[in-house]
Design a protein around this nucleic acid. Sequence first.
DNA 1: CTGTTAGCGCATTCAT
DNA 2: ATGAATGCGCTAACAG
Lengths: 339, 339
Amino acid sequence: MTASINDVARAAGVSASTVSRALRGRPGVSDEVRDQIKAVAAQLGYTASRSASSLASGRTFTIGVLVPYVGRWFFGTVLDAAEQVFSAAGYDVLLYNLGSPETRKRFFTRLPVRKRVDAVLTLLIPEEEESAALRSLGVPLATTVGGARPGFTVVGIDDRAGTENAVRHLVNLGHRRIGMISGSSGPLHWTTPIDRRNAYLDVLADAGIAHDPALEADGDYTVEGGERAMTELLAVSRPPTAVFAQSDEMAMGALRALRRHRLRVPEDVSVIGFDDHELADVVGLTTVAQPVADQGAEAARLLLRQLDELGAEPPGQVRMPIRLVLRETTAPPSPRGPQ
Amino acid sequence: MTASINDVARAAGVSASTVSRALRGRPGVSDEVRDQIKAVAAQLGYTASRSASSLASGRTFTIGVLVPYVGRWFFGTVLDAAEQVFSAAGYDVLLYNLGSPETRKRFFTRLPVRKRVDAVLTLLIPEEEESAALRSLGVPLATTVGGARPGFTVVGIDDRAGTENAVRHLVNLGHRRIGMISGSSGPLHWTTPIDRRNAYLDVLADAGIAHDPALEADGDYTVEGGERAMTELLAVSRPPTAVFAQSDEMAMGALRALRRHRLRVPEDVSVIGFDDHELADVVGLTTVAQPVADQGAEAARLLLRQLDELGAEPPGQVRMPIRLVLRETTAPPSPRGPQ
DNA sequence: CTGTTAGCGCATTCAT
DNA sequence: ATGAATGCGCTAACAG
């Protein structure tokens, strides 16, 4: 039914080897014959079977991409950009959505990407054994999340610097009671929340502000979590006049909580986020912008480079720039404080 | 380096066929031997090469998913849900991000999924020739977007009913000048904007409201487009007191435009969206909710069913329920009108 | 229940 | 520049 290389060979009056060479642009075929073969192949609608060619050559021209939640803006955006780079280079993308613990566990025990991909880009932070499993694949590895890890090319941002920008902005506005909504859960090796927390503590210390543990709440990196966390922060005896959320989604949850409590932003409470979510602008959220799509594209490019120059050293760690985006959710504290 | 079926066979003291049968749970192997083989395979870290097995069996256990923009909430959410269903059934997902015209064209001319997938789920609306190209693959086809199309299982919602809900809500609140922000561009076969527009016109007619073409603007299904469209609507001589946006993202753009024009929502202008975006709640957007993830999951299930019962008829069209979600961006028109 | 024999469709030597 | 042979790792049909 669907044409094979032999059909093309027969129709063109040449051997299968010549067809293979001609279609893949390899040398050793006269231009005349090559054009002939191309014409015949096009007419027959021939495409080489990926299964057969990767079985024969050992290369799959496929990249595995591991994602915790495709539906979340951050991951979707990274994936989108990475896919474009891969497909432009002739690679297909195999997507693994590993949000639930069961799916994730199954993936790492069965490792379905084995012998299926030429490289892996992971947007989730592998635990130690998971990293080892990925390394055992023997293919180039990259990630856009988490800190440096042996065997991985990591494209990221300076979380400390980003956080310092955010918290200092609040300090400079005159805030002294500055809360933080973090995403503390997650794998142990996820250094992001830790780095951001440390930077937060440092800025407070620098400003001579005593740290109050009651001003920290966990928002689980979701809108709902951010809302819960903000609600908690409002319940403490002296609520914060400003809040730094470790992600825009949590910041938006915080905005919702504040609205429900009939508090005005930024008059009663200032809020600053992290990411520059596509909708941050819609709600006027002040935030630390990171180049999300660029990180995905860059990670993809670095992976492709390793595939091209097979002996090449993995590039290690790459930092992308961040910047503070001032909008309308931050202002000096009101003289009377919240409420 | 990596173990092959023969390594397992040798280590277990059986033939390769027995290993193949044992590991795939096929009958004709004693429990004793099967357990033995499983143990050996696990110990050797053996996984069957997908290339080899699909070459031999003709099945790829892979589904191709075509997406216009992975980064957009709607598509990301559908993809997320569909992937979970596929992977739970043991299928891998090959992702094709076909947002740009060049990528899209290249995809449909080269058809890289040929011989690579057992089925295709498309989240973009194929043009007529594109549909034909997909049908030529000879595999089950499904989509969650657009109207009925021969050869495709389509899982969707009742766009007309959803729109009627939205516009009637505005009419019932007392609005007479009701604008619409649509997404008119896109492929000819995309009936969604057309269905929604027709429903909008019908409700107006039913309510005895004359249709004013100046009250329609194109928002391109993006936040920015929605903002531009709203700005246009505000510039007409008698601006609308209420606006129906064909997507939440355009509605959010409209909210931003209104904020920039210092108009209050809903006091000055009411806004209603469509989708129930995950952040619609954050901005208090009244909208028509559609079960986005469910549509992806259902389409995936229907595809798998066709794969199981090979002779089975494609299910045709499936409608999922919609419902109006009342929040805070709609209210009766102010007596004095906008401004 | 198990082993043997053939391919699946291509890429890659090695000849010529 | 081209063709013939070989094998990638597996599944399926056929024996026994």
